[in-house]
Amino acid sequence: MIAIAHPTTLYYLILAAVLFGVGVVGVMVRRNPLVLFMCVELMLNAVNLTFVAMARKLGDIGGQTTVFFVLVVAAAEVVVGLGIIVAILRRRPGATADDLDELKG
């Protein structure tokens, strides 16, 4: 390792925060349900990055274990979410979040 300058934990936290923010904006702006999920995945990845950065700062493996759990949760979430999307798009191809207006809200 050639030590020029080490990015501190702060760098990683800021990167994660920006990633999380991009995900939030995406969820609020986009309309395609598939893309909405992808934005939620961005948010989860930001959290993972935060956990790993914190784990290194603390010298504690627990943060990495948590990321493992988050991965499982993300996988389960996506499976169910895509199941719902397939169920809905099979009836109405090309639906976007705005077309889902059977429920007025």
Binding site: V24, V27, P33, L36, F37, V40, M43, E77, V80, G81, I84, I85, A87, I88, R91, A97, L100, E102, L103, G105
Partner: peptide
């Protein structure tokens, strides 16, 4: 019902 599912899902995941 499916629309409710997808709305709940997106906001719940969020």
């Amino acid at each position: 019902s499916q629309e409710a599912g997808i709305k709940y899902f997106v906001l719940g995941g969020f």
